[in-house]
Amino acid sequence: MQSAYIPVLIYAALVMAFPAVTLVLAKFIRPASTSFGAKLKPYECGIPPESDARGRYSVRFFIVAMLFVIFDVETMFLIPWAILYKGWVAAHQGLFALVSMVLFLGILLVGYLWLYKKGALEWA
């Protein structure tokens, strides 16, 4: 089964090399850069940049990232369940599979409602 991934590896090497190699090769085609001074400053609507951009930013981005981890792991748990579900239904164990997943999602739903009440899902 692992040998199925060898074509992917070969293909991966090719497509990863493509942008890198063209970026290097394009150096020989395009004119040498003669820019200096203000042209090489980051764009800030024409005025000289005020400060380094890598400063502080809104904490909400962190909250979203953390919530994403929770809900994406949930999706990851759902995928194997979804794959096997048809087999369980065929073996008349569908109700058991469904109820166990409802319980799992129910626990997450309580967390979701708590987040909702707390306003963690609010942006403005």
């Binding site: 980051p42 764009y43 800030e44 940049p49 380094d52 951009a53 890598r54 930013y57 909400r60 981005f61 979203v64 990232a65 994403f68 809900f71 994406d72 949930e74 999706t75 759902l78 995928i79």
Partner: peptide, 27 residues
């Protein structure tokens, strides 16, 4: 890497947007 306010804000927004909708797409 660009060290520009616009770039950083765009990148942050993009990541927040992608992770938010990744979950819905996965479901």
């Amino acid at each position: 890497a660009s060290n520009s306010h616009y770039s950083l804000m765009g990148a942050l927004r993009s990541s927040a947007q992608l992770v938010s909708y990744e979950t819905a797409a996965g479901m």
